[in-house]
Each structure stands twice: as structure tokens, then as C-alpha cells.
Computed example of a mutant assay.
Amino acid sequence: MKPALILLHGALGAVQHFDSIATVLEDQYTVYRFNLYGHGGTPLPAAPLRIEAFTGQLIDYIRSQNIGPAAVFGYSMGGYIALQAAIQAPDTISRILTLGTKFDWTPDVAAKEARTLNADFLREKAPAFVNQLAEFHGPSAWEPLLPATVGLMEALGQRPLLTPETVTAVDIPVRLMVGDRDHMVSVEETLGIFRSLQNGSMVVLPETKHPIEKVNKAVLIWEIRSFMTL
């Protein structure tokens, strides 16, 4: 039986983000993907979007699929959710590989990130990104997802869940990856979390920015395979 591998997307992402790597990884792993609440055409919950709700969704998914403990590759916010799940329900997660996961959340950081999540701003400055959002989430669903995501960031800014103190509870293998040209996630904040992990490792990807579609797919697949065989 092939090992189970969950590919978990980030904020404003969807399962389609992994199309190009999932088909390759399926040769060696049983690959699982699902859309987080409010993403990929799923209904936006009445309750505010929060990391805690997404964490519960991941835990419930693993248990419903009867695949725990499972390995998780989490991109951006997906990595944050996976690490929180490992703290909350350690029986569900066997190992975690992250890419571009932001750990340094403060009110100022949240406000800075939130300023770009405005529909009119995006239409003017990033029309290609708007087209992607409409494709992933639906022509009428992507706009309401923006303020919901802002609320999630603001909540993290007020009370970050993952800190150098809380991640000490994670004793499974964890590898943190960050791009050397990622303008959202710094090498320094990633290093701070890495140093607090019991069984952690860290990789800095050269010439790599934050958007997953700009990551070298061959390098990413190699890193996932390398980590899965540890």
C-alpha cells in the first residue's frame, strides 16, 4: 500500500494549486486533497474563518478517510494548519513538510498583509490573480473570501497559535521550507520556529518567491520525496 500524503493549500488557494505535482507524486503515494472551508467553490461558513476551524477540518478529514497518521505537505497557511493539527491531535499527523508558511504574526503584520486583499486594488494591480481567484472559487465567491481572510489574519495578529514556545510540543519530523526571495515569509522567522522543533529540519530554496506557481516544480517534488523517505 502506498503511503498517504495530504497536499494542503494556503489562504485563497485551492486543490488546483497542486495539479502539476499531484500527478507525479501519485506514482509513489496515495495523494489526498481537499478544499478548506470557503475555498475552491465550497460555501463560506457563517462563522468567521479561523485557523482553529481549518485545523478541525483537517483532523476530521484524516479520521473520516481512515488514513491517520498521515504525512502532510502544507503550502503557506496549509503548513500552519498542519502544525496546529499536530499539536491538537498528534495521532493524526505522522510528518509535516511546509513551504512558505508565515509564523511572524502581529497586528502590524496582519494589517500590512490585509491592505492588499482588497477587490478593487487587486483588479487594478493584479488582474491575473483576480482571474485565478475567480477560476478557483467562482466568479461571485472570490470577493467575499477576501474580507473573511483578512479577519483570519487579524485574529492571528492578535493571538498567533504557533510560536517558538508552542511548537516544542511537536515531536514528529517537520521540515520547513522557505524561498530566499519570499517577500511575505522571512528566512529569520522560519529559522526561529525551526530552532524550537524537537525533530525539525529546514531548507532554503534558491531563487524562489512565495507564490507556489513560481516554485520550481522539479525541486519541490524532489524535496517532498526526500522528506517522505526519511
Rank of each mutant, 00 (worst) to 15 (best):
E52G: 02
A46G: 13
L152W: 03
I212V: 14
F227Y: 11
A134H: 06
E26Y: 08
P147S: 08
A119L: 03
Y61S: 00
L97Y: 04
A47I: 08
H210F: 01
I212A: 07
T101W: 01
P164K: 01
T30P: 05
I67Q: 05
E26V: 15
A85Q: 02
G192Q: 14
P90Y: 00
A119G: 10
Q65A: 09
I59A: 01
L205S: 07
P211Y: 02
P211C: 09
N118S: 09
P206K: 11
I6S: 02
Q84M: 12
D91F: 02
T106C: 08
G38H: 04
P164R: 03
S226F: 12
G10C: 03
H9W: 05
N216E: 15
A86M: 05
R115D: 15
A4T: 15
L83Y: 05
L176C: 07
L36V: 02
D108V: 15
E113D: 09
L133A: 08
S196E: 13
L8W: 00
Y75D: 03
M202I: 12
G179S: 12
L25C: 09
V130H: 08
K112Y: 13
G68T: 09
A53F: 10
H137T: 11
P45A: 04
L176M: 10
A128G: 07
L191G: 12
P45I: 04
D104A: 15
V203A: 11
K214C: 08
K112W: 12
T168K: 15
E189D: 06
P173I: 06
L7C: 04
L205K: 07
R95E: 00
R33W: 05
L220G: 04
G179L: 01
I67W: 02
P139H: 08
F54Q: 10
A86D: 07
I212G: 03
I51V: 14
V203D: 13
A53Q: 12
I6V: 14
I51T: 12
G74I: 00
G13K: 00
D91L: 03
R225Q: 14
R50W: 09
Q88V: 15
V187F: 13
L12C: 08
T116K: 10
I221Q: 03
Q65L: 01
P160F: 08
Y75C: 02
L156M: 11
A11E: 06
R181G: 04
T106H: 12
H210T: 11
E26M: 14
L205Q: 13
P173T: 14
S140A: 12
E223H: 10
Y32R: 11
I212R: 04
A119K: 06
R175M: 15
A89G: 05
L8H: 02
Y75F: 15
G79P: 00
L146W: 10
L176S: 06
H9G: 00
G179W: 00
P127V: 06
I93F: 07
L12I: 06
G13A: 01
Q132Y: 07
